[in-house]
Every structure is written in C-alpha cells, then in structure tokens.
C-alpha cells in the first residue's frame, strides 16, 4: 500500500479521535495541519508573487521601478519593530485608498443597484411577489426609528418569518456540507485505505 495513504489514514483517525475526547494524537495532527498549511502558503507566495513580481523583474529585466512596491512591502513587515512601525501606515494607507476606490463603485453597482433592480415588484410571477414581500418586511424588521407596534409591528414580525426561513435553509445546507466532508473521509478510509468499497 502507498505510504501516503497510510499516513493520510492515520492522520484522519487522529483527528476523528477528538470525538471521544481531546488527546495527544489529535493535537499532533492538528499542529501538523497548521504547520503544513502555513509552510505551503508561504512557498506558494514566494514562488508566485515575490519571485515573479519582484525578484525576477528587478534582477533579470532591470525593472528598478518595481523596487518601490517592494519597499512598501517591507514597510508592512516593520510593524514587528515598534520603533519603525509608523512606516507601515504608508503602505496601509495606499492599500485602503486604492482598495476603497476600486471596491466602492463595484459594490454599489453589483450589490445595490443590480439587487434592487431584481427585487422590483413583479406581479407577473408569484416568485417576484414573494421576493418583494420578503425584502419589504425584512427591511421593516431592521428599521429601528419607529416602534414595532400596530401594522408596522405586524409587518416587522412577518420579516422575522422570512429571516427564520433563511436561517433554516442555511442551517440545512451547513449540515449537508459537513456531512459531505465526513462522506469524503469515509470514502477514503473505506475505499483507498481498507478497499471495502470501489
């Protein structure tokens, strides 16, 4: 049997052992996962970002303008040194400024205008009416400048029902997702490791 499969099966059982109680095998597997994940991401970042976007352009292609973002990157790391930590604010300001500039128009268009357009009252379909009622009543529930009494209170109450349906659907999907992960591990243990299933 492939040594990789044996190691993977052992680590899977180590993690499952937590279901009985916390133990050194579980801790070992958990720490190994964290360490390997961080190491992997670090190597990927070096190979796909630092090397092709900084080292190669500067030293191979003579693009010395790339040194400027390189220096801004180093400024971010200076947060670990209290005396020079203030320099990281320059990089953070650039990231926040550019990020907000890029994100705000896109978010308004995609998440507000397009969503509002799709929510406009459409009497031609039952779905459209349900969506409109759901949005209106849910927004009423989150409107806190008027006391939730009388007709407004009833509208807000209806909004909570739509919220509950959403929470129920999300909860069901979450259960499905977690069970899928268990099925994946069981398929591995019963198939690749024990060869009980094909």
């Amino acid at each position: 049997m492939d040594i990789g499969i044996i190691i993977a099966a052992f680590l899977t059982l180590c993690i499952f052992s937590f279901l009985y109680r916390d133990n050194p095998f579980y801790k070992f597997a958990e720490h190994l996962l964290v360490g390997v994940s961080v190491g992997y991401v670090l190597v990927i970042a070096l190979n796909t970002t630092v090397m092709p976007k900084l080292i190669s352009p500067v030293f191979r292609d003579g693009r010395f303008d790339y040194i400027i973002p390189g220096i801004l990157g180093v400024f971010m790391l200076l947060r670990f040194f209290p005396k020079y930590a203030w320099l990281s604010r320059i990089s953070i300001a650039l990231i926040i400024g550019a990020g907000a500039g890029v994100a705000i128009p896109a978010t308004i268009q995609a998440k507000i205008f397009a969503q509002m357009q799709a929510t406009m009252l459409n009497f031609a379909s039952v779905d459209g009416i349900i969506v409109f009622v759901g949005i209106a009543t849910t927004l009423a529930y989150f409107f806190f400048s008027k006391e939730h009494k009388g007709w407004f209170g009833k509208t807000a109450r209806a909004g909570t029902w739509f919220l509950m349906i959403f929470f129920g659907a999300t909860s069901g999907y979450t259960v499905m997702s977690r069970i899928s992960l268990l099925i994946g591990r069981m398929q591995f243990l019963l198939g690749d490791f024990l060869h009980v299933i094909k």
Binding site: Q115, Y173, T174, S177
Partner: peptide, 15 residues
C-alpha cells in the same frame, strides 16, 4: 460548497 450556497441565491435570482 453547500454551506455557501444560500449566500449566492440572491445573485442567481438577479441574473
């Protein structure tokens, strides 16, 4: 993944 699916239904219904 199923756990994320409900988050995307508004985008699905908006086209």
């Amino acid at each position: 993944t199923a756990v994320m699916a409900t988050s995307f239904y508004p985008f699905l219904s908006s086209g």
